[in-house]
Amino acid sequence: MVQLDSVTKVYQKKHSSVTALNEFDLQVKKGEFVVVKGPSGSGKTTLLLAIGGMLRPTSGIVTVNGNDIYDLSEKKRAKFRAENIGFVFQLFHLLPYLNVYENILLPDGVAANRAGLTEVKEILDRLRLTDRAYHKPGELSVGERQRTAIARALLNGPDILLADEPTGNLDSENAAQVMDYFAGFHNNGGTVIVVTHGNEAEQYADRTIYLNNQLL
């Protein structure tokens, strides 16, 4: 499902360069729940964005669902991402001028497998957002914002859910709820990769990977 072969990512700065990933190999099977842990600066987010087709590695191959995603054109990669990958970020990354309903529908405008009204209602209901559907992010609690972000990530029925510190801004109750949603997705056959430096995700994981100075 997800395979990284000798992936290296070097960030070029003005007078120096930083190696975030160095000859990194990884294999995540379909339906696996993987937690990636490590201290700040260990390359966790780089890894996640590279898997998500958002960050081209300096070298190496990233294969997702059998596609070398950086071999695809920008247009095809964007479409692939819209249809196969759901992202959840620590800071939710919702558009401030769209309400919950519109934020959830954001990927729908670009995905081939567009959601129907029933699916949107169902996902709003499942994530307990029905009453907040027409509220803007600024009017939501942090837990509701993260649930909105999860709803957006799940709308088009992706195969893979990539989450970057999804509980980093949440209290323990909301964090547990978020992890429950991920577990639900995983139980339905979805692949989950969660990047975190917290401990709450590990109990849901099939496997935990530790990243520390680019070493497993």
């Binding site: 819209a82 249809e83 405008g109």
Partner: peptide
């Protein structure tokens, strides 16, 4: 960044 993440193309 968000739009790119959810699959919007540069164009």
């Amino acid at each position: 960044g968000i739009l790119r993440a959810v699959g919007y193309r540069i164009g």
